[in-house]
């Protein structure tokens, strides 16, 4: 029995008109993409949080700046966002410090700019594909609705050629059309939830990084004013 029922649902989708099939295809693609990104983003943010946590612990735990810099610059590929910001800032600071005649202000400005640039890059990386989730969340219900409306239109059109209209005649068409709405909602709801959740997480991360940058700048300024 279940086999035939499965078949009938499959039939329903396969017998759908071309626009409805097209809509279903788009929605399926959007849904898979958005879910893929949801999982990718989930992993990336988890990793970023963990990295930030452990680096901050290490940093404020009194580790030697030079040692930290050495370790981070040696394996840049595996470093976290905040480590890369630290590395960019410290590298610039060292470069400027080596140049003769550079005032403290010039050194600090350069360092800040370097860290800000690295921060922007990292934020861009973190926020990438979030707009995709937002788009899927807001658009796919409409796409699904379009498929549904089209399917219902066709169902009623086929009804016009029949002398005696019965519910059984439109019911399959409407059911098939409603699959499109279900598909659209299925794509949209997780995308919207994930989008909101991830924006919040990224905001928190960025605040943490910015405060780290400010505090690190203070430390560097103290070092710069100290006679080398």
């Amino acid at each position: 029995m279940e086999v035939t029922q499965n078949l009938s649902l499959l039939h329903l989708i396969l017998q759908a008109s071309v626009p409805v099939k097209f809509v279903l295809g788009i929605l399926l693609a959007a849904s898979s993409m958005s879910w893929w990104h949801i999982f990718l983003k989930l992993f990336a943010l988890k990793r970023a949080m963990a990295d930030t946590e452990s680096f901050e612990k290490e940093f404020w735990g009194g580790a030697e700046l030079n040692v930290l810099f050495q370790r981070v610059s040696e394996n840049r590929e595996e470093a976290g966002e905040i480590e890369r910001i630290f590395e960019a800032g410290f590298r610039e600071f060292l470069k400027l410090r080596r140049q003769a005649g550079a005032s403290v202000n010039v050194i600090m400005d350069g360092t800040r700019r370097a860290m800000r640039a690295a921060f922007q890059r990292e934020m861009d990386g973190l926020e990438s594909h979030l707009s995709f989730l937002a788009t899927v969340g807001s658009v796919s219900p409409y796409v699904g609705l379009f498929g549904t409306v089209w399917g219902i239109m066709l169902a009623f059109q086929s009804l016009a050629s029949v002398a005696q209209a019965t519910l059984a005649q439109v019911a399959p068409g409407i059911a098939e059309a409603l699959i499109a709405t279900a598909m659209g909602l299925f794509a949209a709801i997780p995308a919207v939830v994930a989008y909101n959740r991830y924006t919040h997480d990224i905001d928190r991360l960025s605040i943490r990084m910015e405060s780290f940058m400010e505090e690190f700048s203070n430390i560097l300024q103290r070092q710069a004013t100290k006679p080398a």
Binding site: W35, W36, L42, F43
Partner: peptide, 27 residues
């Protein structure tokens, strides 16, 4: 390093699993 290569595959598999679940639910 937005995503590690290992994570790509995992995320893809998870997405596929979610969709499989959805199809089962529907059917």
């Amino acid at each position: 390093n937005y995503a590690l290569p290992r994570e790509d595959v995992t995320a893809g598999l998870l997405a596929a699993a979610v969709h499989g679940f959805f199809v089962l639910l529907l059917v």
